[in-house]
Write a protein that binds this DNA or RNA. Sequence first.
RNA 1: GGGGGUGUAGCUCAAUUGGUUAGAGCGCUGCCCUGUCACGGCAGAGGUUACGGGUUCGAGCCCCGCCACUCCCGCCA
Length: 643
Amino acid sequence: MNFTFEIHSCLRQNVRSLGIPYSGSAAKNFYMKRTHHCNELRPAHIGQTITLSGWVHSRRDLGGLIFIDIRDREGRTQTVFDPSDLPKELFVQAASLRSECVVSVTGKVRQRPAGTNNAKIPTGEVEVGVVALEVLNMAEVLPFPVDDPEIASKVNEELRLQYRYLDLRRPEMARNLKLRSKVAIATRSFMDEQGFLEVETPTLFKSTPEGAREFLVPNRREAGTFYALPQSPQQFKQILMVAGIEKYFQLARCYRDEDLRADRQPEFTQVDIEMSFIDREDIYALIEGLIKKVWKTALNLDVPTPFKRISFEEALNRYGIDKPDTRFGMELVDFTEDFKASTFKVFSGAIANGGVVKALNAKGLAGATQGQLETMTEYAKSFGAKGLAFIKVEKGADGATVEWKSPIVKFFTEAEKAALTTKLAIQEGDLILFAADQWLTACEILGKIRLYCAEVLKTQGKLVIPADQFNFLWVIEFPLLGFDREQNRWYSSHHPFTAPVADDIPFLKTDPKKVRGQHYDIVVNGVELGGGSIRIHQPDVQKTIFEELLAIPPEETKLRFGYMLDAFKYGAPPHGGIALGFDRLIAILCGTPSIRDVIAFPKTAKGTDLMTDSPSSVSAKQLRDLYIEVKVKKPETATPPAA
RNA sequence: GGGGGUGUAGCUCAAUUGGUUAGAGCGCUGCCCUGUCACGGCAGAGGUUACGGGUUCGAGCCCCGCCACUCCCGCCA
């Protein structure tokens, strides 16, 4: 009671000294400042008078006694309004509070009565006996609950994005943002310890229409010219190496105007890194150190290093994908030799055409439904295959012997069957799936099916992957170039600045397909976390790549990359770098499949922001200033003339 | 650009084969309640079944269109 008086008289004094009339507890500009966060109070605080500020998380009104849990960013604490200690009006005010009102509460920390501790929250041994309440703001009834994690996590994402400020109040979302901040800071401090400089690069850049579609920004000062938002700071960071920065990093915002996915947003953040006078090993060691520190900071886990390395070719051969999830087996097995002379023409014919036969054993999936087999067949067809060959290994009709149920087994010889049994370790209950096609296609078909089978086995409880298992992997020795049949020309598998492996340089002009790039991807649990390369630092090699292999006309090369080739003439050090997808990194650490859950204000699958309703149309004057004429117009919502 | 899924009360979901007045839990409003923490009890309000057409005696359900969200393919040097 006395304390209440003290606070109010103190407020009054403060207000008077500023010459502002004080209107009691309704004063808007001054309030009781918090002394503790809502996750802080423990038995050690018993007896202290403290102040909490935050939101009404939940209210339990027992009539003669009211419990209110106050929540702030850090946690929550139970406060008790007991009419025997309080002025009546204060108790009435407490009864009128509803979820998410903003309050400051002052009271005495006390032990909870025996048997009423709440083991679910860290502050559950104590409570605050309220002596003063200040309502800082009322809240309307919410469009969805933020206090119940079970319901809140199921709320339609559309609604969550529209009221993102409410969604972010949920402790689960607050935790994600907190972890993101911690990791960003750990990254900066690690890079600083390693001698890197954080340099900001422009986000108003030049259009370089290789690769992803760009966001364009019209230039008001010269009609018909545009900036582009960078897809990555690639060129700038290489120029910084020419500039002698030696070790650069940046938490860089990047923009790509491509369709979205759960793990792709039109703007995203990458940990962008570049170093001079290094080779691939230096990058591996640096990133392994960074990951170690990040995992320790975020999850208190010790990540073993160095990471395993696997070549692109081996990754495809064993897992059918260049970002393998190695937390489970089900590897692909090659049967090209075994079926070379098979009477089953689908197999032997593919081999005669220069293709391969591969198979995988989905252990325990013999009971696959017709629908599941159809889904897998669709995957195969999407790669151009005619169908999907399979064998269900099940108990025979007699209940004792094991039978291979499949439309194709009748074509197999005993030797072929024996090869399958041995190499795939076939047992009752297995499902064997085949791909017979060109090497890459066959691998990719089974790679896709392998992941699908794992999903099915997971839902059936036959495959269990611990949540804290992180299989890091370097994928290396990618082909430098791919060939586009339709356009009849070579393209960079990654980007045109990637240096060829030194031993392969002679093949550049004779057999480009054979040239491996000094490129590396860092993969964890089937997710591509990042990638990079040692760059070309000799202008003549770079020119060869641009003009002879990528067949970009010299004038165009000059127009688009001239400044870079120029820079390289004046002493470019050997250099290389890497970029890690920061949003994906945080999503993995948070255990969520969608990066929207780790971005404060993400966009929907159509690239809109439901809270601000952007993108939106602009005024005719704005368009005129930018020399822009809009040809296709969205029908405007007609404003009815005023009555 | 293409394929799949979803859309019913403020929220999460039901609604048999197309058949009476579209239900439940939570939330909300009112009343009661001094140890709750998913408080409890009683009562009540709340619906253009996303939207626009169509078929039918009759549509939440079937058909066509359209919008939004979502997952995937293409795309993402």
